Simulated scan of single mutants.
Amino acid sequence: MSIRFLILAAAMLTAVLGASASQAAELKAVGKLADGQCLSPAQRRHVSASGKVVPLGKAIRAAKARRSEVVDAKLCKGSKGLVYLLTLLAHDGKVTRATVDAASGTLAEGG
């Protein structure tokens, strides 16, 4: 083995371990959010990468059953776990909100 290979392998391992620690810190921070607080972009990426939530596209499809366009989406902590809070614009111009369970991708009751 060459020195060059060992240095490259060490650098790659350091990068992977650093990313894992960063992801763990972001996921831990999500657990400390109060109900109603929304995740930062970095937290959203880490939670999505962890597989703990459905992709945003699935949540949008659930909300589009209302025949509206999604104009804003946030991933927030709800009382029973993470939820997507979607702002919808209907064809008549009316703005409504929908709540989608982020774990299952189903439209929440009353949401």
Rank of each mutant, 00 (worst) to 15 (best):
A10Y: 01
M12Y: 05
L107T: 01
G111C: 00
S2F: 03
S104D: 01
M12Q: 10
S79H: 12
K58F: 04
L6S: 11
S48R: 07
P41E: 10
Q43T: 06
G57I: 02
K74T: 01
K94V: 14
P55N: 12
R67V: 12
S104I: 03
C76H: 08
G31S: 10
K64N: 14
T99I: 11
G93Y: 05
V83C: 02
A34W: 07
D101V: 00
T87P: 01
A98M: 04
V70C: 06
L88N: 09
V53Q: 01
R45L: 11
V70A: 10
A103T: 07
A19L: 11
A90M: 05
T106E: 14
S104M: 03
H91V: 11
L86T: 00
G81V: 06
V30I: 14
A42E: 13
V71L: 04
G105S: 06
L6M: 13
A9Q: 14
A73W: 02
K74A: 14
L75C: 09
A21R: 14
V83A: 01
C76I: 05
F5N: 13
A19N: 12
L85D: 11
H46G: 01
R45I: 07
A98H: 06
V95G: 00
A62F: 02
S22E: 13
S104Y: 08
S2T: 15
P55C: 09
D92A: 05
K64D: 13
R61D: 15
R66N: 14
L27H: 04
P55Q: 06
Y84R: 00
A59H: 07
V100C: 01
G51F: 03
L86N: 05
G57R: 09
A65D: 15
V53G: 01
R44P: 00
S48L: 05
L85R: 12
K58I: 05
K52L: 09
V47M: 12
E109C: 00
G57S: 14
A102N: 08
V71A: 09
A24V: 02
A15W: 10
V30Y: 09
S20R: 15
K64Y: 03
M12F: 10
R44K: 14
C38D: 06
K28V: 11
L56N: 02
L56M: 12
R67Y: 10
T14I: 15
K77E: 01
V83G: 00
